[in-house]
Structures are given as structure tokens and as C-alpha cells.
Amino acid sequence: MATEFEELGAVAAFNVTLFIRRFNPEDGLEARWEDFDVQVHGTDRVLDALHKIKWEIDGSVTFRRSCAHGVCGSDAMRINGRNRLACKTLIKDLDITQPIYVEPIKGLEVEKDLVVNMEPFYKAYRDVQPFLIASDKPTKERLQSPEDRARFDDTTKCILCAACTSSCPVFWTDGQYFGPAAIVNAHRFIFDSRDEGSEVRLDILNDKEGVWRCRTTFNCTEACPRGIQVTKAIAEVKQAILRGRA
């Protein structure tokens, strides 16, 4: 009887092949694909498969992850050619009759395996001054109407995973471009009624490498694991620059 009940509640297990893009700066070799066969369950995510590989097959496989639940934004990677969070991608939702290809996000320098240098991405983020700029002293709560709050609600959801910026073809060819994530985070403050720094931020994004480089390919909107309408936010910033105010 016991086995019957176990089988009843059991989660289906199946075998998948993962091709992981490997690169080690110390062995002097070019980046290459390496395949791993693992048994996973219907409830497993790509991150679980990566864990299984790292913990049971090859401990040198390198990737970033912190919270492992889609909040910290550490494990953005290119899975089957699309930027996703490994911790939010269920393996059963991919085509498991084919191998699953996992590679680092594009446009940023690869440090090892799936780990890239995020500094250029953070630099663009810092450059848009992603903090509240207000002249009065914070002695009491700054009130805001629900309508004013709704203007930038979508862009508060960003977790800085770089999935959008590293899916942008303009960013791939021109690393100077601020990129969608920085513009999203500028949008979050530009359209905040409590903020007084929109003029400065709009001026920064009116730069040669600012919003005008956006070609509206919608790659960023498609890549965002938080469902932010990134291209729309960029278009709103463009309009704000044309108007001269938020």
C-alpha cells in the first residue's frame, strides 16, 4: 500500500541534456559547449539542474545565484537563446526532447562560465542617479496620491538582473548605450511626484548615448522576468524629454 501512495503523489522524473557554455580564463582555451545529462523532476527549474550538475557531477561549473526565487536577479542567463532567470524557468516548460542550451547573457564580458562582469551595467545604473532627490528635510512622510503613484508603478518592479539590457541589440554593439535597465530606473524617479531631480535625469538621458539610441525592438520587454513594459517606459522618457518635463 505504501508504495502505491508514493507513486500516486510522485512527481514525474525525466532525463534532460544541458549544454552549458564553459569558459575558464585560467586554462587559456576558447569558450566551448559542454553537455551534462541529468535526471530532473517536473517541479525542477533550470537552476535546480545547474545545482545538480555543480553538486553531483562537476563542481567547477560556475554561475551566480543568491535567493534562488526570482527576487535578487542574480541568475539571469541565456536559456535556449532567450534571456531568463534560471530560478523562474521550469524545465518542463522548455522543449525537453532537445538539449537545453545555457549560456551567459550577451554584451557583457564573461568572467567564468555563466558569470559576467556586471560593472558596465551598474555604472549606467549609477549614472541616472537612481535615488530620491528632494530639497526639503525628511521630517515627515512625503504623501502621494494613488494616481501619482500609478505613473511609475511598473518600473518599481526592476530587480537589476540585466536580462533586458543584455538582450538589447544596440547594447551588444555599443556598450556606451545606457541600456533599458538604467532607463527603467530613471523612469521610476522621473515620474515620481515627490522627486525633484527629473530635469537632471532627463538631461542625462537626452545624451548621445541616451534614449535616442533605442530602436524599439522590444527585446527588453520580452526578456524582463518581472513583466515590466520596458520599451513603453523608454518611450515615456522620450516623450518627457520632448515635453521638457515629466
Binding site: Q129, I133, G197, E199, V200, D203, I204, N206, D207, K208, G210, W212, R213, K238, I241, L242
Partner: peptide
Amino acid sequence: PPRTAKPKRTNWEKWGWIY
């Protein structure tokens, strides 16, 4: 010190985009 808005200048990228 945070960057401040520069005085008005012609922005060719912006006018290019509008054009």
C-alpha cells in the same frame, strides 16, 4: 556632487530622432 543639467545646447540625436 551630482551632475547638474547643462545649459541649453543643440542635441542632434534628439532632432535626428524627431526628423
